[in-house]
Design a protein around this nucleic acid. Structure first.
Lengths: 227, 227
DNA sequence: ACAAAAGTGTTTTATATACACCCATGT
DNA sequence: ACATGGGTGTATATAAAACACTTTTGT
């Protein structure tokens, strides 16, 4: 989260109390054999030293989508392709400092694009496997769980939803693996290829990935509708 | 929308500017042969005299869901069964009075439960067919369109989503009609009955509705999972 | 008897699932 | 030649879609 708005600067006065408005972003990348969430370590009270989701307060000149995008880029150096506002968390007592409502976003980014392990914004940031991302500050356990639930639903409805996790050119094996990671279960290779090739969401490239085996055809996400 | 927070009461001061936070609620009921949205006529500037979605500012003691519920109940006298937060509208310039972010909700209510045509809150309120609900104040045309898009998607995924629009006991014909109204296209009667009866989302009652024709079996929404 | 809406099955089509072997390359 | 992952097809099961007549009541 961004720094507490408690420093005595120029005061902004209103006739009615107003909550502080922040976005918290569940930023996920694909690493080795699993999803990782970006967490930042809190440098102040409350929850000092605890891990939390990256987030920050809404600025005067941006809307909430832009705020979530900005936070994502600040923390990772990556401009996210798509973000999804999936819930809000706004219980009056969720932040002991005072009223802060959180509009929650999900951002999927390419691991390959990440420049820095820790962003410039937070004192410390780390990518954590989902099993290790527990006991977070505030209600962030809840936010993370809610994000994963929504992610799974989106991917069930459309496997191509995971595309932003992958590099511009990818093999079907990698796409399938991403889907399996998100769904938490294996999917049939032949059926998967049929579905995704017929979906029109990806296009075959005239390029191949080479390795200690037969070269694998590369694909890219199709332009237009959704990517 | 609720009154503008501009009266010079006790001032609330903050170190950083804060947006006002409101919920706007697309409240839909089923009337005759179509959906109607509840609109309220604005009693002040800006957009004086224009129709708008009901909405109001977040109170200190409630979360956003509660705010949307409260607004719905204030305007209609009906406690909505389910509400869905489907988007937010937060462009800095969306309200000429100043920064107001809107968290948008969809509420489906039973026409039969509505006590008052106009709620106590707004100067004037009216139910409008969706074709007539145009040229609304602020960005409310956009909010309404977005709500209807989401509603349609939900109903395609699960026809039982429309249940809150219906009375506690309803015929399959009325349920089907509600789905058709939302989707904007007819659905096959036999297929519809099969699907919905097998879905487990409704239960048959030992009661019938009588009219100038063969009595129709009444159903109720099933308890538990979703209703 | 007639009008009006309720209720009911089967066929066809599309989609989802299950399943196993050969292919192309690097070592 | 062997190891590694890439690539392919068919048969079955399930779900979706198309389609028309009989039943029950009120008038």
């Amino acid at each position: 989260m961004a720094p507490t708005p408690s420093t005595p600067g120029p005061a902004y006065a209103y006739a009615y109390p107003r909550p502080a408005v922040a976005t918290d972003v569940v930023i996920l990348r694909l690493h080795a054999r699993g999803l990782q969430a970006l967490l930042v370590r809190r440098g102040g009270e409350p929850f000092l030293g605890r891990w939390a989701l990256p987030g920050g307060f809404l600025q005067e000149t941006e809307d909430l989508d832009a705020c979530a995008r900005r936070e994502t880029e600040e923390e990772t150096g990556v401009r996210p392709g798509r973000i999804l506002q999936f819930a809000n968390f706004s219980r009056p007592d969720r932040d002991p400092r005072g009223r802060v409502i959180s509009v929650a976003y999900l951002a999927l980014i390419r691991a390959e694009d990440v420049r820095l392990e820790a962003g410039t914004d937070a004192a410390e940031a780390a990518w954590r496997g989902l099993d290790a991302a527990r006991d977070l500050a505030f209600d962030h356990d809840l936010i993370l769980a809610s994000a994963l639930e929504r992610l799974s639903a989106e991917v069930r409805a459309d496997p191509a939803f995971v595309l932003p996790l992958l590099p511009p050119a990818f093999t079907l094996a990698r796409l399938q693996s991403a889907v399996e990671v998100v769904l938490g279960r294996p999917v049939d290779k032949r059926n998967f290829r049929k579905q995704v090739e017929e979906s029109g969401r990806i296009v075959a490239l005239d390029a191949f990935e080479r390795g200690a085996h037969r070269p694998a055809r590369l694909f890219a996400s199709a332009p237009g509708p959704e990517a």
